[in-house]
Design a protein around this nucleic acid. Structure first.
Lengths: 204, 204
DNA sequence: TCATTTAGTGAACATAGTTCAATTTACGAA
DNA sequence: TTCGTAAATTGAACTATGTTCACTAAATGA
C-alpha cells in the first residue's frame, strides 16, 4: 500500500509547489501579476492542472493567507517568554507592526484583501486568525488584571489596540501617508503605536 | 463663442454621467462589477467612448475617490462649529467612523484600494486627502495647546488617532471581525475609538 | 456646398479565471 | 508482457476584462 502513500505525498508536494510559486510571484511582482496562468507556466504544467489541486484562485490565496498566520503566530509565541505583562503587550504590538512592514504581501492577504476573507466566511473552517487574536487578547487581559491598564470591556480594548496597529500599517501599505517621508514610515509607525500605548498606561 | 462653451458643458456632462454611473454600479454591485464595458452599456455608449473622457479605469476611480473626499470634507467642516476642542476632537472621530461605515464603497476608494493611490503618486496633483488630514491635525493641535492631551509630536499623535479610526473601520469593512456579531460592529467601532480617546484624556 | 475638425464606434489584441472532452500516463490483473 | 481501467493531465474553448486604433458619422466654419 506504499503506492497510495506516495501518491498522497506527490499530491501534497504539488500543492506546495503551486503555493510556493504563487508566493514567489506575489513577492516578486505583487498581487496583480499572480495569475493562474503564470503560476502554471512557472511550474511547467497547464493552467487546468492547477484546478485539480485548488478549487479556484481564492483557494490559493486562502492557503497563502493561512501560511502567513502560521508565521505571525510563531513570532507571537516567542513573545510569551516575556513575563512582565507591560513589556509583553508592548512587544506584541511591535512584533505585529514589524511583521506587517516586513511581509507586506502576507499582511495584505491576511488583513486587507477580500478574496481570502470570502473563503473564511464560506468555509466556516476554524480560523487561524482567531488563534492570533486570542493570544493578543490574553495579553490585554493580563495587563488589566495586573492593574496596568484600566479595567473595561476586554473585547473593546483588544479590538481597539489591534485596530490601532492595523490602521498604522495598512495606511502605510496602501500608500496613504504621502504627507510623510517614506523612509521615516517604519519609525513613525512604531512611534504612533507607542504614543497611544504610553497614554493608556503601557509606558516604556 | 457660445458653441465652445456648450461643447465644454457637454463634455463635463458626459464626464459626470460616466462618474455617476460608475458610482451607481459601485454601490449596487460592489467593485468587482464595475467594468468599463458595464459603464458603457449603462450610458448607452461604446466602451471606447469612455476613453475619450478618462485616460484609464484608475482615472475614473481617482475621480470618484475625490468625490468621496468632498463629501467627507463637508462633514468635517460642520464639526468646526463646535468650540470645545475636546468635544470637537471626539466628534471628528465619530464622524469619520460614521462616514466610513455608511459609505463603504467611497471609503474603499479613498483609503484602501490601490488604483486611486497610484494616481495620486503619479499625478503629483494636490491631494484632497491632505485637506482632510490638515483639518484633523489642527484639531489635535488645538487640544494639545488647550492642555487636554499631553504635548508631544503633533504628527505622530495625529497619525496615531487617524490610524486608530482607520483600523477600526477597515477591519470591519474587510470582514476581519468574525469574532464579533456583525450587528454590533458599528457600536463596537465607536466604543473602541472612545476607549482610546478616553485614555488619552478626551473623556466624554 | 464642401473641406476640416470633432465625436463616436466596431473590431481586434492581450490577458484573465474557469471548464470539460479528449488524451496521456500509471497501475493491477491476467 | 499485455491489456483494460482508473487517475492525471491538457488543449481548446467560453466568458469577461482593459485598452487601442483605423474607421465612420456628425458638427462646424469658410
Amino acid at each position: 500500500m506504499g503506492i497510495n502513500e506516495r501518491k498522497e505525498r506527490n499530491k501534497q508536494e504539488m500543492r506546495k509547489q503551486i503555493l510556493s510559486t504563487a508566493m514567489k510571484l506575489f513577492l516578486e511582482e505583487g498581487f496583480q501579476n499572480v495569475s493562474i496562468r503564470r503560476i502554471a507556466d512557472n511550474i511547467e504544467y497547464s493552467p487546468a492542472t492547477i484546478y485539480l489541486y485548488f478549487k479556484d484562485k481564492d483557494d490559493i490565496l486562502f492557503a497563502l493567507h493561512n501560511a502567513g498566520f502560521e508565521e505571525l503566530y510563531k513570532r507571537q509565541q516567542e513573545i510569551l517568554a516575556i513575563k512582565d505583562p507591560k513589556k509583553r503587550l508592548r512587544k506584541h504590538g511591535e512584533v505585529y507592526i514589524k511583521f506587517a512592514l516586513e511581509n507586506p504581501e502576507y499582511y495584505n492577504l491576511m488583513f486587507i484583501m477580500r478574496g481570502p476573507a470570502k473563503k473564511i466566511v464560506e468555509s466556516e473552517e476554524w480560523n487561524v486568525g482567531m488563534r492570533s487574536y486570542d493570544l493578543f487578547k490574553r495579553d490585554v487581559e493580563a495587563s488589566m488584571r495586573a492593574g496596568i491598564i484600566k479595567k473595561s470591556d476586554i473585547d473593546v480594548a483588544t479590538f481597539a489596540m489591534w485596530s490601532l496597529a492595523h490602521g498604522v500599517v495598512s495606511l502605510i501599505l496602501r500608500n496613504r501617508c504621502t504627507m510623510m517621508d517614506p523612509k521615516d514610515l517604519p519609525s513613525i509607525a512604531q512611534k504612533a503605536f507607542e504614543y497611544i500605548m504610553k497614554n493608556i498606561g503601557i509606558s516604556p
